[in-house]
Design a protein around this nucleic acid. Structure first.
Length: 294
DNA sequence: TCCCAGGTAGATC
DNA sequence: GATCTACATGGG
């Protein structure tokens, strides 16, 4: 990789194993807007960023080298060797090769813990476009305006103290449905320190998972997403309806209980479980979309 | 009208 | 323990 500062923009050249669209649209994050081919506005880390990919180069508009180094390099996980991860996964189990072939440009974003936890509580039993809409509403109502692109204003994800001021009714007004009570409780737990990302990150995976599950509305799957996307536990392998289906198709050939799939995945993918899961999840959704358009 | 969605809690068997 | 069901809301 080579980093160039030019006209107030940062250009990162020679980026390997990275596809911006795949990374943003694979369901791990919800705050992005596609404004063109390989061209996006994202909101993360309390900032708005216009970012575009051209072949193996990334252009980060209106960004300093300091901000790139301090925030975005880590956020996009650009320092990690994904070629090595993919080779290791295939060598452990070659049935995942098709998924990696199709979605190998995904990187696991290093997102902020509070936002991931709240977002994935919202996500349960809901479709991705709607999850994005609900989170956008919460940000517009309770976040800070942090930028404008075109005609559109962009708002930060509200911090835990702001969220803790909301009533259950406020959450319900954002169309969160039965999850409103869960969000109310989780926001209070974040604000009063009962649940603290930096403490969870220092625990082992199992203890962190159990702590997360002590929250009402956080079960195994939401906990695993939070571990993987918000706390850096790359071994976590969240099993939702998509992953269940694709695992049944590729590895089992029949309906299989989540617990059995989990055991198999932990053993087969080990410390790389999270990467495997994300390749498989995106692969399953892409295939379904293609089938629908046939 | 019914079924489903990046599930979970609580009831019941 | 394992299985069943209600839970808001919107799209197909």
């Amino acid at each position: 990789m080579r980093i160039i500062s030019e006209n107030g923009n940062i250009i990162v050249e020679n980026v390997q194993d990275f596809n911006l669209g795949q990374t943003l649209e694979c369901g791990q994050c919800f705050r992005y807007e596609r404004i063109g081919a390989d061209d996006y506005i994202i909101v993360a880390m309390k900032k708005m960023l216009h970012i575009q990919q051209q072949d193996d180069s990334l252009i980060l508009y209106n960004t300093s080298e300091q901000e790139y180094k301090g925030i975005w390099e880590e956020y996009f996980d650009l320092e990690r060797d994904y070629g090595e991860i993919k080779r290791e996964l295939v060598s452990r189990n070659d049935k995942i090769a098709d998924a990696i072939e199709a979605q190998g440009g995904i990187r696991i974003l290093n997102q902020e813990f509070d936002e991931v936890l709240i977002s994935f509580i919202i996500s349960q039993n809901q479709q991705i476009p709607r999850i994005r809409k609900i989170i956008a509403t919460i940000c517009e109502r309770y976040g800070d305006k942090i930028g404008t692109y075109g005609e559109k204003d962009y708002y930060s994800f509200p911090d835990k103290y702001r969220l803790a001021e909301l009533t259950e009714e406020d959450f319900r007004d954002c169309k969160t449905g039965f999850r409103a009570a869960y969000l109310y409780g989780a926001s209070k737990a974040l604000a009063d320190g009962t649940i603290d990302g930096s403490i969870l990150a220092s625990m082992d995976r199992n203890e962190a998972e159990e702590t997360l599950k002590s929250l009402k509305g956080v079960g195994k799957k939401v906990a695993d997403c939070t571990l993987l996307f918000g706390l850096g536990f790359k071994a976590a392998f969240p099993i939702d309806v998509w992953v269940k289906r694709v695992m049944e198709e590729i590895y089992f050939g029949k309906e299989t209980k989540k617990e059995e799939i989990q055991k198999f995945a932990d053993k087969a993918f080990g410390e790389y479980g999270g990467y495997a899961q994300q390749y498989l999840f995106a692969y399953a959704r892409e295939k379904s979309l293609k089938d629908k358009n046939k």
